[in-house]
Structures are given as structure tokens and as C-alpha cells.
Design a protein around this nucleic acid. Structure first.
Lengths: 284, 284
DNA sequence: CTGAAAGCGCTTACAG
DNA sequence: CTGAAAGCGCTTACAG
């Protein structure tokens, strides 16, 4: 295999950069599911996956450089998109093939796979409004992530469409995806004013928000999450959440990258994977 | 890098076989944590990790053969130990270096890293007995896994040591590590006889058991889990659980395997990683 | 101590 | 169409 790689100048190895995401990496099945989708597609087409954990953006960049300079890896898969991402600009500069799970800064000149986060959150808020809610709060993850910004935009758009006012005091972005951050953000909002519903961008945030609501002994506040985590079903009340189809995201990411490496005709440089609102007791 | 591999006959690549573990793979942070420990140690020593998902034991074996025959991978890390494991016997037969996270059939002639599962469960049951419980049920995972057998043995030993009788009707092994299986096993036990405490070998099983207890509107049954999952803390009541230190397990696994590959003096062929009982409301 | 040469195990372009 | 030879980019043993 090694000799073949050397002779044919093709290693058939893809690099997967796991972002520094603290608890989220371990508690959010998204990463493992995406890894599964990537792995299955890659295996079918004879490719191997190498992964690297990293502590921060600098270390991610270090690994990418190391992989590319060593010519070990033919293409790279990134699992998060940040604003002004150094890894992305390096990959672009060196013309190294890569694919992004998430929305890129410039969607035309990079390969990417994503949900329609704007539409997904729009649908959530639209759904809450149709249920009669007029006073809906928003709790998002880190504000520098596109996923947060897109979902916030979807939230705003849904309010506007239905002629509802936006209240900055009811919008919070957190430092990270964790239950603690969700709890704090919810407490902030509750101390400001009690909404009738809360849309969050992550189940962990929703779990924390739920705890804050319970501590304040409030009832009947609708709550939604994202990622349809295994334990969403077992919250009290069970949590309505958006299934983002992580395995499919991974599968298409691998497909795009390998198509590119094999210089297939590329009908598209991206795929948009459908989401599904899974309705449970928290929005009844 | 590739040329170096060919010339030096050393790829510096380790293979990681992810077992077919259904939900457990996505919901139990063990796997990701172990992957992190492996990755960090390997990176420090200049090694790379390749992973493969597989649907069943046959497919795992297929990947192992493929990796070894292709000489891509210098050593292999296995994340589960089953009885009569085909992968292990193949790896032994071909003399391919590998390390097992979990207890091997013959602990002398293979490299392995594990908790002392017997002792860990002994400690749990001993702790419950000291709390005054005399009627303790057991819910374990698949009976063919060593981890289940060792923990069951620890449970039995603790009962015996304290002169308590063993009741087969209060011992259940499940098909897989899932909330559903935990729920069913607990229902079985409750329909047979109501115990005062339940020791489980996995948080997911404990989550399910908790649901069964709540549905039956029973109170004051002590409950324990394993893996100290993120959400153990947020169950009602919060769940007492054993932290198995998965990242450390992964780290030592990588260390053993790389030491072997580099033909270091091996003072030991295994490491036993300490566990820690994290006490919460479910055993108060 | 230094540097040119052989060899790792394949692929591929090319001579026959 | 077939098969011997060159070359991929390194390491390493060896000649000078």
C-alpha cells in the first residue's frame, strides 16, 4: 500500500480535524455520527480516514500543515466553520482539497455540506408562533460560528414575517455548547422578562435552560433544541428538537471530497441536507 | 512521509477499530474520550490514527485483514473485548501488534488496558450495602462481554462477603447498552420483586431503569450507573455513577502499543486505570 | 566524517 | 500485447 502510494502519488487518506469543542465533542452525538457517515462512504470508495484532536485553532492549523507538508493526506474534512478561520484560509492558500461541514464564508469557492440552518430555525419559530406563542426567546451557541448566526437570522426572520417585535433582552449567545451556558443564558432571560417559548440552537443548551425554568418553578414555557440528542426524549418534559441528520452530512462531505480528488465532474460544490423537527412534550 | 515510510519500513500509523455498538457508540462518551486519549498520546510520539467503523465482527475482521495485508497500519487498537473474539485470534495468529481496551481472554500474552471491573463493581455494591441495602438487583450489558462478566462477579462477591443471598430473579443481562434495554430489564425485576437498590453496568441502562422505577411510581430505590456520563448529573434524582477514566484508558493503550512498536523495554503488558465512584442523589 | 549509491515495493511509460 | 526498466522520495549501509 505504501509503495503504491509512493508510485501513484496518491495515498487515499483523508484527514479529519476534530475541533476543540469541549464537552460538546463528547456529549453531542453529532461528531461521532458525522464520523460514521464519513467513514462508511470513504470505506466504500477505498479511502482511509485519519483523525486529529486539537486543543485550539492554532493546533488545528499545526496538524493541517503537518499533514499537508508530509503529503500524507490527500484531502481534509473540517467539522466546524468559524468566522475568519485560519485553517480554511491556509487550505485555500495552499490549494489543498478540503470540504467543510457547515457554511463557508464564501460558498462559491469551497466544497461544503450543511443543513439550511436559517430555514431550520425559521421553521422552529414559525411552528412556535402557530402554536400561539408571541413572546419567544433565543439561546444560541458561540456568536462567531456561522451556525449560530444563521439560526439567529432565521429566528429574526420568522418574528418579522409574523409581525412580532424583536427584543434584544431575550436573545443570548453563549460561550460554548454546554448545559451550564444554557442555564446561565436562561437565568439571564428569566430575570429580564419571562417569555412564553424559548428556541435554542443545541440540546445541551436546552437541557440547561430547562433546569433554569424548573428552578424558577415556571411551567408551560415551550422549549426547543437542536441535534435531537438521544436524551432529548428523556428530559422532563421530553424535548422537541431538530434532527440535523449528522450521518448524512458526513456521508456527503466524504462524497464531495473524493469526487474532487478523483476529478469527477462536479455538478455541485455543496449539498444541503434536510432537517426534521421532532415534536415532543416540551412544545405541547 | 510516504517515501520515508517505504524506506524505513515504518508507517507510524495505528489502526483503531470502532466496534458495532449501536447507540452506545454515539451516546456513551467513552468512545470519543478514549479516542481523544489515544490521539493525544499518539500525536506526542509522532504517530497517526486511522479509524474504521464496522457493522459487525465480520466486518471488523475484514478491515483488520485489509489494514494488515496492505501494511498500512503498524499496530491496532481494539475498543471492546468479546469472548472468542475473531479479530483477536487473527491478530495473534499473524503476530500483528495490538492492544485491547478491556480484559483479554489470556491476560499474559496480549497488551491490554482496563479498569479493575471486578473491584469497581465490588466497591459499588459494598458501598450500597454499607448504606443499609440488603436487597440489591443487578442489570448488566451483553453477557458475552468480559466487562459484564467481571462486574457481575464483583457484584456476587460483594454479596457473598457480606453474607447476603444471591437471587437469580434480580440479575439481568441485556442485549445491548441502551435505555430501552435498561427499562425492560428493570420492569422484569420489578414485576418479580421490588429490590431496595439496583447496580447497573452502564448509565444508559440506569437511565432506563430509572424510567421504569418512575413509571411504577416507586420511590427510594437506590440506583447506580457506570461511565459517569455527562447527563448522569441531570437525571432526577441525579445518578451516582462510576467514572472509568476513558481518556486515560486510551492514553495508556496508545502508550503500550507504541512502546511495543519501538521495542522499548516493556516493564508490563498492561495498565489498570483507576475508577472513581461519583456519589449523587440516587444513592442518598 | 561525508557523500554517492542502492534499495524499499509498487506503477507506468515505453521498448520490443 | 507483454515484460523489463525507470522512477516515486526517502533511509541507510557502505565506500572513500
Amino acid at each position: 500500500m505504501i509503495a503504491r502510494s509512493l508510485a501513484s502519488n496518491s495515498t487515499k487518506i483523508l484527514g479529519l480535524i476534530l475541533p476543540n469543542a469541549e464537552d460538546d465533542l463528547f456529549e453531542n452525538p453529532f461528531f461521532m455520527q458525522a464520523m460514521k457517515g464519513i467513514s462508511i462512504h470513504a470505506q466504500n470508495r477505498g479511502y482511509y480516514i485519519m483523525y486529529a484532536f486539537s486543543k485550539n485553532e492554532e493546533e488545528e492549523l499545526k496538524f493541517i500543515k503537518h499533514y499537508i507538508r508530509g503529503r500524507l493526506v490527500e484531502g481534509t474534512i473540517l467539522l466546524t466553520s468559524r468566522k475568519d478561520d485560519k485553517c480554511i484560509s491556509y487550505l485555500k492558500k495552499t490549494q489543498h482539497p478540503f470540504v467543510l461541514i457547515g457554511r463557508p464564508e464564501d460558498p462559491r469557492d469551497t466544497l461544503w455540506v450543511d443543513n439550511d440552518n436559517f430555514q431550520a430555525m425559521y421553521n422552529v419559530v414559525d411552528y412556535l408562533i402557530r402554536k400561539g406563542h408571541k413572546d419567544i426567546a433565543f439561546i444560541g451557541g458561540p456568536a462567531n460560528l456561522y451556525v449560530t448566526r444563521d439560526r439567529l437570522d432565521g429566528y429574526r426572520k420568522a418574528l418579522r414575517t409574523h409581525g412580532l417585535p424583536e427584543d434584544k433582552g431575550k436573545i443570548r449567545c453563549t460561550k460554548e455548547f454546554s448545559r451550564e451556558c444554557g442555564y446561565e443564558a436562561m437565568m439571564d432571560i428569566l430575570n429580564y422578562n419571562i417569555p412564553s417559548a424559548v428556541a435554542t440552537t443545541d440540546d445541551l443548551l436546552a437541557f440547561g435552560a430547562n433546569l433554569a425554568i424548573q428552578e424558577k418553578k415556571l411551567e408551560g414555557i415551550a422549549l426547543t433544541g437542536f441535534n435531537n440528542t438521544y436524551l432529548a426524549e428523556y428530559q422532563t418534559p421530553s424535548l422537541t428538537s431538530v434532527d440535523i441528520n449528522a450521518e448524512k452530512l458526513g456521508m456527503y462531505a466524504a462524497k464531495l471530497l473524493i469526487d474532487k480528488l478523483e476529478k469527477k465532474d462536479m455538478p455541485t460544490n455543496h449539498y444541503v441536507v434536510d432537517t426534521k423537527l421532532v415534536e415532543r412534550d416540551s412544545t405541547l
